[in-house]
Amino acid sequence: MLHEMAIDRRSVEGGARSQVALGATYEGRDPSLLECMLPLVDYIEVTLETIAEVKDGKIALSEEVMEEIRDIGDAAQIIVHGVGLSIGSHEGWSPTYLDLLDDFTEQVDVAWHSEHLGYTKVDGEHLGIMLAMPKTEEALTMVCERVNAIQDRYRMPFLLENIVHVIPDFPGDYNDAGFLNALTERTGCGLILDVYNLECDAHNHGFDVQAFLQELNKECVRELHVACGVEHNGFLLDVHSQLTRSSTVALAQQVVRQSPNAEVVIYEFMPEAVPGLGYDAIAAQLARLRDAFTG
């Protein structure tokens, strides 16, 4: 079980747990950043699409970045977080992504892997953004079949993440929590709860986060994401360009207390944000999160 790996990091006080491990995204080609993060994190989250490059007309993992990741060794556990599987595309997922995952898992020990519950392409045409699934029975059946196939293919835990709703929600058969509950019940997969995405949905669409959390089966939550983007025209955008807000950390702390199997909180930021944020600010952010979540 996933939670057995980090059980020694936790403290249980009156049944409410407040401590989990800490992780951060790393997308390669910035060894100074990795050096400043490693003493502060327990997990490094790798997104395969961002460490891939085109070689002889084919998309493949960057050897340079793979060497960096292999060199992490025991300094942190590695988890893989995809953005390009497109598990919800009507025509099927991206085989290119799974080829990369095959290659990666042959070279590196991975604690678990995950994807977003959504789709990024339609008939091979890329949306340029990720859209949430319509929460219908038909969509649920389709996604469950694919989750089961992935779990059969990779003998390691697989998690799905709630994504931000960038367009109005389709009036389906389930609400958000009900869809996730049915998905985890039918497949046994775990969940990543991105609490910044919940905040975006609350800000942009009046989403009731507390009602969602009340209904969600939080035993399935294994990982949390915290991040921060920018506000534009009154919309909170899911771009990982900023340091986290205190409200995001507070919400993540609440979810951790309520989720008995949560393992890790990951601070997500994109490599393009690093020059603007600076190494010192990122390290200070991780130190604050470490205080907030690891005690």
Partner: peptide, 26 residues
Amino acid sequence: AYIQRVATSKDLEEAQRNIFLWRIYV
């Protein structure tokens, strides 16, 4: 009605803006 609602929503404009911002960053 849903597709018509999305087509006229401010959310759609912002989604397009979001795509634009991601491309800018990259």
